[in-house]
Design a protein around this nucleic acid. Sequence first.
DNA 1: GGCACTACCTTGCGCCGCAGGGTACTTCGA
DNA 2: TCGAAGTACCCTGCGGCGCAAGGTAGTGCC
Lengths: 114, 114
Amino acid sequence: MGAEAAVTQLRRGAVEHCVLALLEDEERYGYDLVHELTAAGLVASEGTVYPLLSRLRKDDLVATVWRDSPAGPPRRYYALTRPGQRALDDFRVAWTGFAAAVETILHRKHQEDR
Amino acid sequence: MGAEAAVTQLRRGAVEHCVLALLEDEERYGYDLVHELTAAGLVASEGTVYPLLSRLRKDDLVATVWRDSPAGPPRRYYALTRPGQRALDDFRVAWTGFAAAVETILHRKHQEDR
DNA sequence: GGCACTACCTTGCGCCGCAGGGTACTTCGA
DNA sequence: TCGAAGTACCCTGCGGCGCAAGGTAGTGCC
């Protein structure tokens, strides 16, 4: 697995909660999220985001409403629910522990130093 | 996906390179790696590690030798190869970028603060 | 009319962690 | 002597998700 492929695998499980984090302050629509996540390097295509949003909706972590766009097709807006907020809070804790574990191993001092 | 399940997904792609990092200074054997990775919370069972080690060997990122154990069955020791070291170096860079992206989104300031 | 952009969505593939199960050797106490 | 516990290696099947690729419409401009 190359470093690129490894990052693809890392995204699993992270993207989902990053979406929740993006919805923490304001409702947003899918196409907008696609652009932001792509720019951040967290997804590679729409094919990741839309199925993910469907899952979040099915699990009641987000709620949706259709709104007309000033120009173009209508947009489906997503907003964080109470359970969604809880899931996000839990993940922040889990992420911190995970990232710390990886970094401890990745940057551990070489024992023979000095 | 709960926070636990999310971490399970996060491990994909990270565990592999953590193994390479553990081999950076010294050769080690599988059972030993299983214990260390389990203690670090990076794997949940042997069923993750042994197939992973086989993949690394197939891709020439590690080289192996059998050595007798002072007590018990013989051990297969794994050592980092040149390509393995390169893969590890690449991953450290990739990880840094990925972790930064996640943390930027996860802990971004709430715009309406103040 | 045709092209580009916006905005939604689906299907199939491939990959990997995990649970669970299996083999075999050594040691040690009953 | 026999069996349990520990060491050490391994495999198979399942499930879940990111991705590539492709599909459907509505809007606006030339």
